[in-house]
């Protein structure tokens, strides 16, 4: 501002900043108060407003305002995923994943809460939790992708973005989110120590097996088959009173082998996610 004893006027920088609407609120109010009684500064504002360079600048500013107004709102999950290093557009694609919605994650938490609560006061404290926890990411993967789940599935297939990339991106995110929740729930189990983490390898094994089967079947069918098999195995072990063996070294080594085998199938057959959609 140009200051002089008793008065001040807008200098060219302030005129330009005011016309471009980039002054702060206090300065803008001060300028407007002055403009009410200063014809010279009003003329300076009018001249600047009519200047082609100023008009072009304002058009750009306006476009930016419109873009900010139109821009999709970034939700909690999307923000979190982006902070973890995923690109903004990939994070946007993840935001649409049905099994990454807050409501889905909240319901998972509820299921895990019930499993933990049921585990308290029982002899086979971890059995129910061991049954439920590995199924959480399997259900998440089934609800992450596919014609039965994703309303925009067909539009996605007809687009050039690789189907396999979208599927794997969603599945990894769902796996991390649901395994994280299950991990937190496991800390509340009455039994302490190694058995609290015994669900982790089965969870990874079952999830990767679901993905491996999804190279041939739909994700929902694959997940249903894996879940059914898992439930039958656990029920049988409960009947035989051998659930503790699931946390044993032999069983855990078997799950590790399952993880390696299923991962190999996914790596070798990942192209099937792209080609199978066109069959």
């Amino acid at each position: 501002m140009t200051t002089a004893p008793g008065t001040w006027h807008l200098d060219q920088t302030l005129v330009r900043r005011y016309v471009d609407a980039v002054t702060d609120a206090v300065t803008a109010a001060s300028v407007e108060s002055h403009l009410l009684r200063c014809a010279g500064c009003r003329q300076a504002i009018a001249d600047e407003s009519a200047d082609p360079a100023s008009v072009a600048r304002r058009a750009l500013i306006w476009e930016d305002v419109v873009d900010r107004l139109d821009a999709p709102r970034v939700g909690i999950i999307e923000r979190l995923v982006h902070r973890l290093g995923i690109g903004a557009h990939d994070a946007r694609l993840l935001a649409a994943t049905p099994s990454l919605q807050v409501s889905w994650l909240a319901s998972l938490l509820l299921v895990l809460g019930f499993a933990v609560a049921a585990a308290h006061g029982r002899d086979e404290a971890g059995a129910l939790f061991l049954l439920a926890a590995p199924l959480i990411p399997v259900a998440g993967v089934a609800a992450a992708y596919g014609p039965d789940i994703d309303p925009a599935h067909e539009l996605g297939i007809a687009a050039p973005y690789r189907t396999s990339r979208l599927l794997l991106l969603r599945c990894v995110s769902v796996l991390v989110a649901s395994a994280g929740l299950a991990g937190c729930a496991a800390l509340a189990l009455p039994a302490a120590g190694w058995s609290q983490a015994a669900w982790l390898l089965p969870a990874l094994g079952l999830t990767l097996t679901t993905l491996a089967l999804s190279t041939r079947l739909s994700p929902v069918v694959s997940a249903a088959a894996v879940a059914l098999t898992w439930v039958l195995v656990v029920v049988k072990l409960v009947q035989l009173d051998r659930t503790a063996e699931l946390a044993g070294a032999t069983a855990q080594a078997m799950f590790l082998a399952l993880i390696v085998a299923a991962a190999a199938v996914v790596v070798v057959r990942h192209d099937q996610f792209d080609t199978r959609s066109a069959v």
Binding site: P72, R73, L93, A96, A152, P160
Partner: peptide, 17 residues
């Protein structure tokens, strides 16, 4: 999604990064 958000989502699938 809003109409804008949905079309924007498909635009990402169409490799408009």
């Amino acid at each position: 999604f809003t109409a804008f958000e949905f079309v924007d989502y498909i635009a990402i699938l169409k490799e408009m990064t």
